[in-house]
Amino acid sequence: MTETRQRLMIDPEVIGGTAQAPRLIGSVCARCATVTFPRQRSCPRCTSEDVHPRELATRGELWSWTIQCFPPKAPPYLPGGVEEFEPYGVGYIELPGEVRVEARLTESDPERLRIGMPMELTLVPVPGAPDKLTFAFEPVPEAER
């Protein structure tokens, strides 16, 4: 993992922590406790502006998933990512008591994904920009569940 230390987060407003222990940065409303991701300046539920940044949980359950089978258009994808395209998983991960976060999945085999499976936050290189890291969720190994 030493090499990842040199890489930059895709957006430091979205991913905090360290390369070894990343955290997604959301926000929480001081009035109604609604959690959002990414960080918002006001609460989409109660409209309060008394909203503060919050590091979100790093484990949750897979709420829904799909496999992205064709290369996204560039832009907004990066052109290099399209040339080397391989299908990838996408899902929503329900972070308990917080929010469901949309993310890439490290698993792209539909046979190995199921709703409700435990997932954990990790970092992956940005397709087409290997010097940058973006977030993804990976299945929690059976032994750690």
Binding site: I10, D11, V14, Q68, P76, Y77, L78, V90, R104, P127
Partner: peptide, 22 residues
């Protein structure tokens, strides 16, 4: 933010798939 598109999440087809899958 642009991170959303670069990460590969800016596709309407993904949304439809995620919604019906659930």
């Amino acid at each position: 933010g642009s991170w959303y598109g670069e990460t590969g999440l800016m596709l309407t087809t993904q949304f439809f798939a995620l919604k019906i899958q659930r």
